[in-house]
Design a protein around this nucleic acid. Structure first.
Lengths: 178, 178
DNA sequence: ACGGACATGTAACGAGTTACATGATTAT
DNA sequence: ATAATCATGTAACTCGTTACATGTCCGT
């Protein structure tokens, strides 16, 4: 039930098409949500059917038509209502940690290869969050004030990645010594 | 595709029933995986049909019969094979952070209530991980050595929760000042 | 008498992934 | 020519949640 509110939140901040939304999920909220374009289109149709979104088609020169979605009054009401009810805690599901948990099947160098691979991915994530953070810090102070709470989510993403990376680096050092 | 390997891993360490497994998910791997009993039974049936698990029924005095599952040779082979292939990175989906992202719909005290609620839950998680950790540290050193890598996953869980809690406490202090 | 732990399941639905499908424009 | 970006979609499948269903034993 949360995807719909993620979509409503982004469209509330700024209306856009399914394609726009997909990019915004990748570039601005990837530290706490992800969704494929198939999910977007399905969700947008459903929200439109339920009257939470308006849709206007926009012709473009040299590009396919766009369907621009924006919140209706009942969409804004649904979002404002959901936002203040405590959300269910996320359930963690981390395949890599299953692999370590089954680690007695792994040779030392295989374990190191797995950890190094994850470490690369998490370092790349951290770098992209830090970059995003710099863009925020260079933006209009009035906007920064308006989206101050939203920005806190990015700071959590950064700290979480740093913790992860430190843990993995320590683990690699210990694996090297065995 | 990862639930099946989580199930295989736990049954590889020690055979058991669906009910046992459900408890072990809650008590020993909840820091990286969760699953309901319905998922267990479905997955166990599937793995049994595919020949990765053996099943023997065990009558019990005063309790319902148990179906004890254990890995077949091909089950162990499937696990050993999967374990060394890099797993896909987890996709984060955290409903609470959507709520903060839509935080311009929240009054200051509503935001504080949401954060405090999450903080309580994360503190409870941390306490349960710390308790688990103490049980591990008091266990047979030979087992600790055998499951050293598995134990590292718990240490990550603990550090991740500490990071989360520190972030939330700081956020609460800042919300108090506004 | 009632609730909690033990033990196993079915059915329906919602969420997420993978594969397939189409078609224009722009840059190499 | 060929790939990348823009733009929208369908179909089939797996995974995860919620609700329903049954029955025993044990403690209070």
């Amino acid at each position: 039930m949360s995807l719909r509110y993620a979509v409503l939140t982004l469209l509330d901040i700024e209306p856009g098409s399914g394609y726009d939304l997909k990019r915004r999920f990748e570039r601005s909220v990837s530290h706490f949500w992800s969704a494929s374009h198939q999910q977007m289109y399905r969700e947008l149709h459903k929200l439109h059917d339920e009257g939470l979104l308006d849709c206007t088609e926009q012709a473009q020169a040299g590009k396919p038509d766009k369907k621009i979605y924006s919140l209706t009054d009942s969409g804004r009401a649904a979002l404002a209502d959901w936002v203040r009810r405590p959300a269910p805690a996320q359930k963690i599901r981390e395949p890599f940690l299953i692999q370590l948990f089954a680690g007695h099947h792994l040779e030392n160098d295989q374990a190191r290869a797995l950890v190094r691979k994850q470490l690369d991915e998490h370092r790349a994530l951290l770098a992209s969050y830090v970059e995003q953070n710099e863009r925020v810090l260079n933006s209009d102070p009035a906007l920064q004030e308006r989206y101050w709470l939203a920005h806190q989510t990015l700071l959590l993403g950064i700290e979480a990645e740093q913790t992860w990376i430190q843990w993995a680096e320590k683990l690699l050092r210990e694996l090297d010594q065995r």
